[in-house]
């Protein structure tokens, strides 16, 4: 199974009721898979006329309490930003998969990590956040789906799965997990027809003196709660490291052998891999920065996550970037070379 298909099947196992999407490379395996499997399960698949329509179909299905998702790649996700803002305002759960490609504009179809800002900063208009999960293997493409749906339902918000062309296309052996993870609150807000209860209204319009301000404070409290409770992060050999490489997704996998080789060459290197990009593992990185050391972020962009690392480090250590934009993929040797450049002169 390729990553895209693994993710699609895992979503179905996680109880996906409806998939809506529009074709774009490199995620076309997802709608193709869904078009076959969803009807087999008696569930909904619609190929929409645009990404704009797709996210609004998700909006509609989600408002009735159903588990709905869409998937796309960078240019398509840009089109969805209107819907993502409304989903945030209306507090509706949704899962959106972005199999990133090179940008800006039509860019190319090569793997990329240049939509980090868009995903972690809200992307659309208004003060909001979206939980952002960054899988790094085909297994994790699958494993993050039940988590994404649970988080979306628990917090009534959008969860973005931020993958890239490599993760979408590559194949690895996986095990699909069928167990349910979280206890979730009842969806008593859903539009199901007003039977024996007052009318339910789903909206993002808040008129009146401080109505919207108060609504925003409520959202903010929710986001703070998530920042406190939902950070996922993996680290390796950080305790004695002089240099810590920070990378997520596929870049984090390329970093691993580079760090191993650096250790073999006598350099005290380690790595931190944020799994949730928002909420960002600020505390973990801040703690690592308490000892004097160098942080190197490796990204398939001109440096986006590096800003979050800098915020976390807060001036306690040097934060540097090795970035490859426009679909460029760093190699193990390039990263190793950069680690050596940064550490060896310091020993002199």
């Amino acid at each position: 199974m390729c990553g895209n298909e693994a993710l699609a099947e895992a979503a179905i196992i996680a109880g996906l009721d409806a998939y809506f999407g529009y074709p774009i490379t490199p995620q076309n395996e997802i709608p193709a898979y869904m078009s076959r499997r969803m009807p087999e399960e008696g569930r909904v698949f619609v190929q929409s006329e645009s990404e704009l329509a797709a996210i609004n179909m998700v909006f509609g299905a989600s408002a009735t309490g159903k588990r709905a998702m869409t998937s796309s790649s960078s240019p398509g996700i840009s089109l969805m930003q209107e819907g993502l803002s409304y989903l945030a305002g209306a507090e509706l759960p949704a899962v959106v998969v972005n199999v990133m490609r090179g940008g800006p504009g039509l860019g190319n179809i090569a793997p990329s990590q240049a939509d980090y800002f868009q995903a972690t900063r809200g992307g659309g208009h208004g003060d909001y956040r979206t939980i952002t999960l960054a899988p790094a293997s085909v297994q994790e493409m699958a494993d993050c789906m039940p988590l994404a749906f649970d988080l979306a339902d628990q917090y009534r918000m959008t969860v973005i799965v931020l993958a890239d062309g490599i993760l979408g296309q590559m194949m690895e052996p996986i095990v699909l997990d069928k167990k349910k993870r979280r206890k979730l609150p009842a969806k008593d807000w859903a539009l199901t027809g007003a039977t024996g209860r007052e009318q339910n209204i789903v909206r993002s319009l808040w008129l009146g003196e401080t109505a919207l301000e108060n609504h925003n404070y409520k959202l903010q409290a929710k986001y703070e709660n998530i920042q406190k409770n939902e950070v996922l992060c993996e680290q390796y050999e950080v305790d004695d490291a002089e240099i810590v490489v920070v990378a997520y997704g596929i870049a984090a996998r390329i970093v691993r052998p580079a760090v191993n080789k650096a250790r073999q060459a006598g350099i005290k290197a380690g790595w931190i891999r944020p799994i949730t990009l928002w909420p960002f593992p600020t505390e973990q990185i801040s703690r690592a920065a308490d000892q004097m050391r160098i942080f190197l972020t490796v990204e398939m962009s001109n440096g986006q996550m590096v800003e979050d690392v800098k915020l976390a480090v807060a001036g306690k250590a040097a934060v540097l970037l090795y970035g490859r934009p426009g679909g460029g993929v760093p190699t193990v040797d390039e990263i190793l070379e950069r680690i050596k450049q940064l550490t060896l002169p310091a020993k002199r």
Binding site: S48, M57, G60, A63, Y86, L191, T192, Q199
Partner: peptide, 15 residues
């Protein structure tokens, strides 16, 4: 039961 949606998108939401 009612929903208020982005400008122009009611037919997609209805879908």
């Amino acid at each position: 039961d009612m929903i208020e949606v982005p400008h122009g998108r009611p037919p997609a939401v209805a879908t």
